[in-house]
Computed example of a mutant assay.
Amino acid sequence: MRDVILFVNLTLDGKLSGPNGQLDFMRPDPAMNEELTGELRARVDTILEGRVIHHAFEANFRAEAADPASPPALVDFANWMLDTPKVVFSRSTTPDLTAAVAELKAKPGRDMVLFGGVATAQAFVELDLVDEYWFKVYPTAIGDGQPLFTRRRADLTLLQSRSHPSGITTLRYTR
């Protein structure tokens, strides 16, 4: 059976973004990103996304892939993001998220990665549909913002932690 890996950026106080979707806490770390995305690409063959983030990713990664100034590793990742099969969720098309994910997990293939957006990530967590959590934790606390964990308690087991020179810590947990 395939696993769902939730891969998100978090603030030190557990926020996915500021109250209006701000991501200004994020800082670049190309070496860390290349390492993480390489590990992720070796494990997954399907991307799960919310509708809003799907459109944002599509535009961003098309631009990155076409930009002659983009580093080769970023172009490679952008093309992977564009070419990898996707399942896009929206509130109007997936009334029974649990059944839809169970059906995806039962299909043959490698694991799946959920990139979000906020509402989709929160729904997966709330419904206990995430098998592994991959966090990039930035050393910034923003106070007011959109949390990943809203109502459901999550007792997780640490699989791996790494500190990076940028101050970002990567954490992997399983349920």
Rank of each mutant, 00 (worst) to 15 (best):
A63Q: 13
E49Q: 13
F89W: 05
K86Q: 05
N60L: 13
R62N: 12
N79S: 11
A78Y: 04
T37H: 13
K86M: 02
L82H: 06
F77C: 02
D96H: 06
T37F: 14
L36P: 08
R43P: 02
A56P: 00
L36Q: 15
T93Y: 00
P95S: 11
T84G: 02
T94K: 00
M81L: 13
G50M: 05
A78M: 08
A59F: 03
N60S: 08
R51V: 07
W80M: 07
F89D: 03
H54V: 00
D83Q: 08
F61W: 13
V88Y: 01
D67L: 14
A42E: 11
T84S: 05
T94Y: 01
L82D: 04
A63H: 10
E58G: 01
T37I: 09
A66E: 15
T94A: 12
A66V: 14
P71C: 08
L48C: 04
S92K: 04
D96K: 05
L74H: 09
E49M: 14
A42K: 11
A63M: 11
I47M: 10
K86F: 03
V44S: 01
D83G: 06
V87G: 01
W80F: 15
D83A: 11
R62L: 13
R62D: 06
D67I: 14
D67Y: 14
M81F: 10
A69W: 05
T93A: 07
P85R: 04
A59R: 11
F89T: 06
N60G: 03
D76F: 08
G38H: 09
S70P: 02
V88K: 01
R43A: 14
F57Y: 07
D67C: 15
K86E: 02
H54N: 09
A65F: 05
M81D: 00
M81I: 07
E64T: 10
E64N: 05
N79G: 09
F61G: 03
M81C: 07
D76M: 09
G38V: 12
A59Y: 04
P85N: 00
A59G: 07
N60K: 09
S92F: 01
D76E: 15
R51C: 01
A63Y: 05
V75A: 10
A73R: 09
R62K: 15
W80T: 07
L82K: 06
E39L: 15
L74G: 00
E64R: 13
A56V: 06
V87F: 05
D83S: 08
V52C: 03
V88A: 00
H55M: 07
S90V: 07
A66C: 12
A59L: 08
A56G: 00
G38M: 12
H54F: 15
T93F: 00
